[in-house]
């Protein structure tokens, strides 16, 4: 079941994962609807590492063809929520 509070928790967890990859970034300024690769200057290896940590944290399968759905913070939250329904 997805609730507002679990979404907030998911969001906080995802921000932590991003913070591990881009420790110098100011995540408070992150626009949740805009791709974070450009905002945080992530290269393809950073993004792959992020996908791996999403997989490990939320136990979700992320095929390469689904990568575009995980390009924004809100997109990630929605995917995690969908995986729980």
């Amino acid at each position: 079941m997805t609730t507002a509070s679990s979404d907030a928790e998911t969001r906080a967890q995802i921000l932590r994962l991003l913070g591990d990859i881009a420790p110098e970034a100011d995540l408070a300024c992150l626009n949740p609807d805009v791709g974070f690769r450009d905002q945080l200057d992530l290269d393809s290896m950073d993004f792959l590492n992020f996908v791996v940590s999403l997989h490990k944290t939320f136990h979700i399968e992320i095929p390469e063809t689904d990568y575009p759905k995980y390009m924004t913070l809100n997109g990630c939250v929605a995917q995690v929520a969908a995986s729980r329904t």
Partner: peptide, 17 residues
């Protein structure tokens, strides 16, 4: 690469580099 990564678990995927 697309076919190969489709077979691989996320932890073992390859980058073009």
């Amino acid at each position: 690469l697309t076919t190969e990564n489709g077979r691989r678990p996320v932890t073992e995927r390859l980058l073009v580099s």
